[in-house]
Design a protein around this nucleic acid. Structure first.
Lengths: 215, 215
DNA sequence: CGGGGGTTTGAGTCCGTTCAAAATACGTGG
DNA sequence: CCACGTATTTTGAACGGACTCAAACCCCCG
């Protein structure tokens, strides 16, 4: 097999749907081997470097994107790779063919959207009812699952995949407010920040931010 | 045919899916006559008076609700009839049978959820980027389609289906703030409120609230 | 070493909140 | 039809969290 040379946003297929790690976590897990082969043929894989724009507002919608690996920032104006990303694209006609073959697939997408909707509504509630500090604590707790690890001293360390500005956007506030909130969090010994590294010596303190316990 | 006596929240079927006005506007519009018959058999119709609770937080989810007529307030804690409502209930097994028969139906639900999600994300954006006054103007503009009419003098009149508190909840703010905002809107001649009646002499003024034009 | 993003800090302001009280609308029974 | 109790709406005053604007600071990179 000839060696493939990947270049940003435009690469030959280095990925097979059959071995794709993200498949088990995605809608495609319900596909038969036959349909999976169809998907594998139809998909186009690209790689992106951090900072690259994947789609921009106004781009026509010709299919769906499936993130094999990496992290993406989805904004109102565009979608940007935050980490090195491998992303497959499946054109609408191919998707429809799969949907026809396999009704369960549609069901999975339905479930996905339902979850997204539930999350969006939860965000609406939290934005109006919780202060920035609590929302930030909530975000850290979410990020720890994917970007957190525990060091020798037993301290939780999170490597944030995004800038302060992105955090602000996510929480519906300003970068300045994030900076100030981080400061208060540090003063209260809940977490210490250094660049994109967050250290949390005691997770309980963070949990108390979300659900304050009377002592 | 025996006369049916409707009582709140518990009525014999006064509605047929075949003649239902809301069908053309709902997912069910894709059903064949055969499937429609299935739906008609499966559904259970109930009527509700204003103020009645339709579902409460914690209730098990045994199927879906289809609003034939009326208006409902959907809250985190419950769903309340705001107007007299006729609502059908379809149990999950029946829904699944229909979904099996007709793949397009699933597609329609997918579309529905996609719209809801888009709306929810739009709400998130508006809540953090627009002041209450603009959001209220936006709401009035939305409500006018369903609850608005034009009187002899050419004035747009909207009969709000909800209380101030509900408006506040919808906009993510407080009833007091709504009262105050209404006052400023009246001072600026944009609209005049009297109870649940809103009068808007010039729609352009309301539109300017959303998208201020330089004069 | 000189940009140029990104981040932090400061001071002042404003919008919306909170709490409390008064005014008004509404439904019910007399 | 009116009186009465309750729920809703309105108003006021004080407070506060987050915003705005502006400047300084930091890093990273060429």
């Amino acid at each position: 097999m000839a060696k493939t040379h990947a270049f940003p946003g435009h690469a030959p297929n280095p990925l097979s749907c059959f071995t794709c790690q993200s498949r088990s976590r995605s809608e495609w897990c319900v596909l038969s081997d036959e349909d999976l082969d169809l998907l594998d043929q139809a998909k186009v894989t690209k790689t992106y470097r951090p900072g690259q724009i994947i789609i921009a507002q106004g781009d026509p919608c010709r299919g769906i994107y499936c993130i094999g690996s990496g992290t993406v920032a989805l904004r109102k104006t565009d979608a940007e790779a935050l980490e090195p990303c491998t992303i497959c694209f499946i054109e609408t006609p191919s998707l429809c063919r799969l949907l026809d073959h396999n009704p369960t697939l549609g069901f999975k997408f339905l479930e996905h959207l339902a979850h997204d909707l539930a999350n969006a509504e939860e965000t609406i509630l939290q934005n109006v009812s919780l202060p920035v500090r609590t929302r930030l604590a909530h975000l850290l707790l979410t990020l720890k699952d994917r970007y957190g690890s525990v060091d020798d001293a037993g301290t939780l360390v999170i490597s944030l995949p995004m800038r302060r500005q992105d955090i602000a956007d996510l929480l519906g506030t300003r970068a300045e407010t994030i900076a100030r909130t981080i400061r208060t969090l540090e003063q209260d010994q809940v977490a210490s920040f250094s660049g994109r590294r967050v250290m949390i010596p005691d997770l309980d303190n963070l949990l108390d931010e979300i659900d304050p316990v009377d002592h």
